[in-house]
Amino acid sequence: MISPDYDSLQVGDSLPAIQLPPVNRTTLALFGGASGDHNPVHLDIDFARRSGMPDVFAQGMLGMAWLGRVLTAWVPQSRLRRFDARFQGITHLGNAMHCSGRVLAKLEQAGERCVRIELSSVNQFGQTKIAGEALVALP
């Protein structure tokens, strides 16, 4: 991996984005098992309907994991200092999420040169489902 360096990065620079395929039931089942989140609202349409939802929907942490992939594809994970997500809307079946990041600021923190990254997960209709932020230490 060719890691970005602090000096050559500019505020506003984009990280390579990731385009996910549309969310389907298999995606949700696999993530339920792998993540330990067995909440049936994500897995069982009968339960979801009894809960007042039209259908099952994606686990929030699945969307956060996709944003994590944007970060770890860009820098080694050992450079990650903070990673925060606000879940702003439900990611429904059929949503194809575009996960992207952008340099918000360059700063020094705890003696390290860092960049603050703005992250977002947006579906094909332009709806933001997750807004996130990360702090990454750079050489």
């Binding site: 909440n39 049936p40 609202v41 339960f47 009894r50 809960s51 007042g52 686990q59 929030g60 942490m61 956060m64 994970q77 050992s78 990650l80 200092r81 903070r82 990673f83 925060d84 997500a85 606000r86 879940f87």
Partner: peptide, 17 residues
């Protein structure tokens, strides 16, 4: 109840892997 639960925010501060 699980049926009424949503995840609002999640944050991680990392020290080692």
């Amino acid at each position: 109840p699980l049926a009424r639960l949503l995840h609002g925010e999640q944050g991680f501060t990392y020290h080692r892997m």
